[in-house]
Structure formats: C-alpha cells, structure tokens
Amino acid sequence: MEDMTKKTVEDSTPILELDDLYVHYRSEGNIIKAVNGVSLKLGRRETIGLVGETGAGKTTTALAVMQLLPDATARIDRGDILYNGESLLRKSKGEMRAIRGALISMIFQDPMTALNPIKTVGAQIMESLTIHNYEHKSKAELEARVDELLELVGIKAIRRNEYPHQFSGGMKQRVLIAVALACQPQVLIADEPTTALDVTIQAQVLALIEELKEKLGTSVIMITHDLGIVAQTCDKVAVMYAGEIIEDGSVEDIFLGEHHHPYTVGLFNSIPKLDDESNRLHPIDGLMPDPANLPPGCPFSPRCHQCMEICTREHPAITYQKGSHRIKCHLFAGGEG
C-alpha cells in the first residue's frame, strides 16, 4: 500500500498490465474457459479498446481487474494483473477495497439496474467519496464535491436528492460515471457504456468520457463491440475472441494495417456500408465456440474461411508482428512481418 502512494514509478511503465491472464469458471463439473492468456498493457492517459462479440471474455477480463469475479465459481488460474507494477492478485481484501473505486473504477454495462433504486443519486455518489475519504474532509466539503460531480456529468446539482427512477437511461449512465469518477481514479474501465443508450445519448456519454479523460488524466479501458466507438475514442485496440486477444495494435494498425486476423476482417465486413448495393448484412458465419468446449487448434478455425489444416490442430502463437501490431494466426506463419 505504501509503495502505491509513492510516485516513484516512472511514467513509462504501464499503469495497468495484464500478464498472460487465465480466468476459468467452474460450474456443475464444466470448466468454462472465459479468459485464456490475455496480455495487455495500458499506458498512462491511454485509451485501449477491448473489442469482440458477446461472450468473448471482455467483461470477465474487466471484472478480474476489479477483483469482482464471483467467488464461488470463478478463478484466476494463471497470470497476473499489475497495477503500477504491483500485483493486484496478491493484495488482501482490505487493500483491494482501497484500490477499487479510488484508483481503478468501473462503469457497468446496464445503467438501468446498476443503481440502487431506493437511495438518492446524491447518496450513491457520496458513498464513493466517504469510503475513500482518506483526507478526512468534512461532510460539507464532500457534499460540495457531489454537486460538482453531478454538474461535471451534466446533471443539475439540485437533482441530487432524486431517486434513480426519476432519471432516464442516459442520465442514469451519467450518474454511474459520476460514481466511478468520484475519487478521480487512475484507471477507468468502461464496460459497454453506451450499449443501453440511444445514439444521441451515446455520443454525449462518449464525449463526456473523452472530456474527463483530458481533465483528469485517466487511462481508460473501453469495452465495446462497436468499432465506430473504437475509432472515435481509442489509442490502442485489442480484438478478443474466445477469451484470447487474437489481434492488437494501435488504432491505425487495426483500421489501416495491411494484414489482419480473419476474424477482424469479418468484424469490419459486418459493419453495414452506406454505398453497399446488397440488401443483406454480412455477418460472420457460425457462432462463438462454447467456452466450456473450445476447439483444439485456433478457436476461430470452425468459422474461418481461410482455415488450413494446421489451424484445426495447432493453437497459433503470435505469428505477425510489425511495430505494435500483432496477430495470432497461422496465415502469417510464413515469416511475413
């Protein structure tokens, strides 16, 4: 805990680093392999986009960082999560509570249910502040901070004594953002912060996160399946499939790079285009493999149009690397890049 408050660590070390992380759920004799060897480096003031279909293990990865995985079923089997160079997995429950909400915060997926229905929004923001009130600020100071936070996310401070049911979905999401940002965290994990919102509100919420990032210098993990959001907000992108990062790199690498993982290609092709003559969408055929029963080779091989014999047998390692751009696919095993 002491070392954490010291600002001795250089600015170049990542604020958050996932090192070969494996998270498995155990239920009724099945082992559900949700996250399989995810490595990720989040630099200071950086936004990383975690992209992938539903069930790719994005939320599980986020919950692992927060140490909020369900105790009964989930276990981190291998790997490490480093915050400022320190392992979060070796922290005690008390130490972890001091980090959660204060240094690492999370905005959850569904704003409709993520607020306590019988507490006022002001009280729910206040809670974050009082938990981490290490400077023993007076109640009046904290109250003022609640008002400030509400104004920051674009809610009039006089509404602090209203209950969640009196707010619309977008406004609830703003309240949740205020809760997450209350203690000016170093890392903000935004788990599909806009999925439940309509398009105009989406833009507002994204602009808000962007603005706050600038103001507070927060690093952000943006979990989404919307590539538009990624292009708009992220510096780096990691594409997840079946609990693995199959391609990662800078936004330019992913959007403009010459080579891509077939899954990434499929993701881009599935975006409807305005100038497309065809009447149909172009989804990726098939479904994500059952995480309790992953195929032996490349997890994407059953759906891949360029699947080769080796793909069904052998799990691909990183085969392509050019600058920050990395791809896990047998297609590039020939030594390209």
């Binding site: 429950k93 509570r97 249910t113 949740l176 809760v179």
Partner: peptide
C-alpha cells in the same frame, strides 16, 4: 445478485455494508 450490489462493491464498499446497506 443485482447489478447495484456489484456497483457498491466496485466503489470499494465493505462486504457487510454492501449486504446490509444495499
């Protein structure tokens, strides 16, 4: 199992306050 309980935990709230307060 509700989401708001997870939100409370994410704030760093103590488990007994999460259970009895929320």
């Amino acid at each position: 199992r509700q989401d708001y309980v997870r939100t409370a935990r994410a704030k760093g709230q103590k488990e007994n306050k999460v259970v009895f307060g929320h």
